[in-house]
Design a protein around this nucleic acid. Structure first.
Length: 616
RNA sequence: GCCCACGUAGCUCAGUCGGUAGAGCACAUCCUUGGUAAGGAUGAGGUCACCAGUUCAAUUCUGGUCGUGGGCUCCA
């Protein structure tokens, strides 16, 4: 099971890089304060591949400023100022930063435990810092400032708006150049670039931001994914043939009252699109409702669903459930709509309309550990099918939530037990990142630039069954409340699609490829023969098409490779004479042992059946 | 939503220190019928994202809007 643990220990090499990066952050801060003396400091840590420093200043840093700061940094580095460690009392540190006007530093000092506090000096620059650092600034040479962005003090958008400058730093020029080359390479795997080049999907500007449209090839891939997932659900999911899921289909809008019952209006409102008729609007009914203190709060009669759970909760209530019916496992490939803030949209990885491979499992309190374990295995199986490396994290209760603490204790402990059993030592915990109705286990996949994205999720919920008054009749003839598990395996088809494209650099596994074979006749004389090959492949269940353009073979090959078509079949006079084909594989080059249509079809079917994940 | 940058042909990009624009690829027609990653010729294609302002004149300067990218915040 290739769950990858988040690294907590650093190698010696990492340690050296960490010193360089953190020291370079100090050097940058010194340069910035030298150029703009009124600038105040926030935090400036080392991060993966580099560092950043947050500044509090009226000046707005531009890209040109970065070059100026870099030049100043190199000038300061030439002075080879030593990094000197200094321990002082907390009260002295406080005095120092207050005297320097470093308001944020002083605020931070106050949060530190009493006792000695370490400072680091290099030249005229002094910073609150635990270290360690390199010996002197002359050792800082292989860096580059990369970007400027906004940030908030302590990550709180209600606090000071700061400006963050990012940089990268390495031990040698070669390492720095290799890093920049890796970034270039990552662009070639970017699903947004490939999605455009390969004609998979589009985001029409007229439609609105974050609304993905699938072009024919993308729709093909998506449908193959959906068919696969549907089959796995109705046949029981991975490794649990007795645990079949049953499909549901629910509407895209529900009455506003439903979203009150679920708690979404109270806890999820900033993400919701509401729906009202123009008639209501024209008649001023919305404003009227607003005044009369109606439950609709002037939001209109309906809300567009940001989640599928309320619909499933309502359907559980159809008919009386016996303990013999449990667990009930309902799934739906449900399209949801969320008002994501404009700055957060990102290709297919973060959109405003997306389809979840969503399911809700209703079971007894005794059953949920086994259910969660089954879902856990399901997630691992799907990710392993593609050979993804992924992290697993536990997210616990946050500020916005419904339900008693005792219930949260129980739910969090339940998830923790499963993780200890299935991923001991490999999972990590994020306090406060749960959903508003329950804690969750998330499966995290990285994109081509190493950014984390949540895919599968398992959420344990003791609260919504209560709000929707779900019941089952137990063996003792008592009415009892079921436990609910919300889960998605891929997460959403859109995000998973995007991550697949990046993982495979656009050359998807054969079973997902929109086209398997393109047949390339060398000249017009072979057109009929080529058509016969296409048709024979089609008869054999292979997706094939003909390239009858008036181009030379070299050009047709190049086009096919550029489009990442898995197999190209060349037919010329020789093939016609011998009744054969010549096969060129995207990954294989010329495949000499395959000379007949049936052999190619067989090979393709084998690779499809095995779902072989091939990469360059 | 916030900070910075960007928006020129279907795609990738030049360009105009203010005088309404150009290349390559793709597309169309024609020539070429060619054996493993780009054959040739001709042609069509742009309200220079949108809306205001300044100006004799704005694609270019200024402001706003929309959209995109890198981050912050937030999440599948």
């Amino acid at each position: 099971m290739p769950i990858v643990a988040k690294l907590t220990e650093r190698s010696e090499k990492d340690e050296r890089l960490h010193r360089i990066r953190h020291s370079t952050a100090h050097l940058m801060a010194a340069a910035v304060q030298s150029l703009w003396p009124e600038t105040k400091l926030a935090f400036g840590p080392a991060i993966e591949d580099g560092f950043y420093y947050d500044f509090d200043t009226e000046h707005r840093f531009s890209d040109d400023d970065l070059r100026t700061i870099e030049a100043k940094m190199r000038e300061l580095a030439r002075r080879k100022a030593r990094f000197e460690r200094q321990e002082i009392r907390k009260s002295d540190a406080l005095d120092l930063f207050v005297r320097l006007g470093e308001k944020l530093k002083a605020e931070h000092v106050e949060t530190l435990p009493d006792g000695e506090i370490t400072l680091y000096r290099s030249g005229d620059f002094v910073d609150l810092c635990a270290g360690p650092h390199v010996e002197h600034t002359g050792q800082l040479q292989h860096f580059q400032l990369t970007s400027v962005s906004g940030a908030y003090w302590r990550g709180d958008e209600n606090r000071e708006q700061l400006q963050r400058i990012y940089g990268t730093a390495w031990e040698s020029r070669e390492e720095l150049e290799a890093h920049l080359a890796r970034l270039e390479e990552a662009k070639r795997r970017d699903h947004r670039v490939l999605g455009k080049d390969l004609r998979l999907f589009d985001f029409p500007e007229l439609a609105g931001p974050g609304l993905p449209f699938y072009l024919p090839k993308g729709a093909h891939i998506l449908q193959a994914l959906k068919d696969w997932m549907w089959d796995l659900h109705v046949s029981g999911g991975y490794g649990h043939p007795e645990k079949c899921y049953e499909p549901l289909l629910t509407p895209h809008i529900l009455k506003t009252d439903a979203w009150h019952t679920s708690g979404h209006i109270q806890n999820y409102r900033e993400n919701m699109f509401m729906v009202y008729s123009l008639d209501e609007l024209d008649q001023g009914l919305l404003a009227q409702e607003s005044k009369e203190g109606s439950s609709k709060e002037g939001l209109g009669n309906y809300g567009l669903k940001p989640m599928n759970c309320p619909g499933h909760l309502m359907l559980y209530n159809v008919g009386t459930k016996s303990y013999r019916d449990l667990p009930v496992r309902y799934f739906e490939f449900g399209t949801v709509y969320r008002y994501e803030r404009a700055g957060t949209l990102h290709g297919m990885l973060r959109v405003r309309s997306f389809t979840q491979d969503d399911a809700h499992i209703f079971c007894t309190p005794e059953q949920y550990p086994d259910e969660i374990e089954g879902v856990f295995d399901f997630c691992c199986h799907i990710l392993d099918t593609f050979g993804f490396e992924y992290h697993v994290g536990l997210k616990t209760r946050g500020e916005k939530r419904i339900g008693d603490d005792a219930i949260w204790d129980m739910a969090e402990e339940g998830l923790r037990r499963i993780l200890e059993k299935r991923a001991a030592g490999k999972y990590y915990v994020q306090e406060g990142d749960a959903t508003f109705y329950g804690p969750k286990v998330d499966f995290i996949i990285k994109d081509s630039l190493g950014r984390d994205w949540q895919g599968g999720t398992i959420q344990l919920d003791f609260n919504l069954p209560d709000r929707f008054q779900l019941e089952y009749v137990d063996a003792d003839n008592q009415r009892k409340r079921p436990v609910m598990i919300h889960r998605a395996i891929l997460g959403s088809f859109e995000r998973f699609f995007g991550l697949l494209v990046e993982e495979f650099a656009g050359a998807l596994p054969l079973w997902l490829a929109p086209l398997h074979v393109r047949v390339l006749p060398i000249g017009e004389a072979q057109a009929d023969y080529a058509r016969g090959v296409v048709s024979a492949l089609g008869q054999a269940g292979v997706r094939a098409e003909l390239d009858d353009s008036a181009e030379k073979l070299g050009k047709k090959i190049r086009n096919g490779k550029t489009e990442k078509i898995p197999f190209l079949v060349v037919v010329g006079a020789q093939e016609v004479a011998s009744g054969t084909i010549t096969v060129e594989g995207y990954f294989d080059g010329k495949i000499r042992e395959v000379t007949r249509v049936e052999e190619l079809a067989q090979r393709i079917h084998q690779e499809i059946a095995a779902k072989t994940p091939r990469r360059r």
